[in-house]
């Protein structure tokens, strides 16, 4: 198990290094002179030079890259050009919105998808299965940001149960904070839950055709017992893959959804960064998003090993 974790950790590090090279290349190398780019076409040459100094653009590519990476490792993402504050500060504030939103929606999506997928698999071919398959088919087709707009329309505008947007802030209590994240999280979670429930169902059905299920039935297990005691854990393996992939979709989705609800999260930060050509902000937030996807992939790999002893034995 330790060997397995170590080998995954190695590949996590490699992925991070490669990803940082890609981000660095796209943001700092391809545009030519980032300083000139950030200040626009009519910039004063002196201002450009000053910014070049500030960004440390006068060094070699290597020294700039290593400066950037070692800074990030120390928690220093550089100075935002537009906000004139350290980017790490900006990120820290925004993370408190985006991170809870992502995890809340992952939680909701998993909590809904598991039982629903299980019910559909257990009642295969019965009306409840058809109903679940129909609803999830529709759920997959709904763009989450449009679904968010519908939720606003129904629950904020018509029923007035929630605010249409904005974030109450954690300082006003856990409940207030969660309440402002609830609609966005639901909007993110339901389409994902549809996918996950379908994967859960088909994975269970696939597992139920395996020989060891027949063995279990020959031991005297009922269909339901065989499903619960043998199929479930085996069916979890492909489901984990999808949860891992979903996280990457949720991150992307959160960035978009924040715009629907005017939430001050990383998504809003990065779009402001783009419109203000603040490459330092864009670069840092992108790297952070990529880091979280890679980290989740790593965690999913560990979860695989926890579920499947064949992986643990280090092959």
């Amino acid at each position: 198990m330790i060997r397995f974790a170590a080998s995954r950790l190695l590949s996590l590090t490699l992925s991070l290094i490669m990803a940082s090279v890609v981000v660095f290349a796209v943001v700092e190398v391809i545009p030519g002179d980032p300083a000139a780019y950030m200040l626009g076409l009519n910039a004063d040459p002196d201002a450009v030079n000053a910014l070049r100094d500030e960004l440390g653009l006068n060094g070699t590519l290597w020294s700039r890259y290593f400066g950037w990476v070692s800074g990030m490792l120390a928690g220093d993402f550089g100075q935002s050009y537009t906000y004139r504050v350290p980017v790490s500060e900006l990120i820290a504030q925004r993370l408190w919105v985006s991170l809870p939103l992502t995890f809340l929606s992952l939680l909701i999506s998993t909590l809904i998808a598991f039982p629903v997928g299980l019910i559909a698999a257990a009642r295969r071919g019965k009306p409840s299965d058809y109903a679940i398959m129909g609803v999830t088919q529709l759920g997959i087709a709904v763009p989450n940001f449009w679904f968010a707009m519908l939720l606003v329309l129904v629950f904020a505008v018509n029923l007035q149960w929630f605010n249409a947007g904005g974030f109450a802030g954690w300082e006003n209590g856990l409940f207030a904070g969660l309440k402002s994240l609830f609609l966005p999280a639901i909007a993110l979670a339901l389409p994902q839950a549809s996918i996950l429930a379908r994967v859960m169902r088909s994975s269970l059905l696939e597992t139920l055709t395996q020989d060891y299920i027949r063995t279990a039935r020959a031991k005297g297990l009922t269909r339901a017992q065989a499903l619960r005691r043998h199929a479930l854990r085996n069916a979890l393996i492909p489901v984990l893959t999808i949860i891992g992939l979903q996280f990457s979709f949720l991150i992307a989705g959160a960035v978009i959804i924040e715009n629907v609800f005017y939430l001050p999260g990383l998504g809003r930060l990065i779009f402001q960064g783009i419109t203000q050509r603040d490459l330092v902000v864009v670069e840092s937030v992108v790297m952070l998003l990529v880091f979280s996807v890679i980290l989740i992939t790593f965690l999913v790999d560990l979860a695989y090993a926890a579920v499947d002893p064949r992986l643990r034995s280090g092959r």
Binding site: V23, I30, I256, I270, V282, L289, V290, I294
Partner: peptide, 19 residues
């Protein structure tokens, strides 16, 4: 492949658009 998988299409779009 793994590397590209770490960049959701939105992130790729953000990078390209930013530049």
């Amino acid at each position: 492949n793994d590397l590209i998988f770490a960049f959701p299409s939105l992130v790729i779009a953000i990078l390209i658009t930013a530049v």
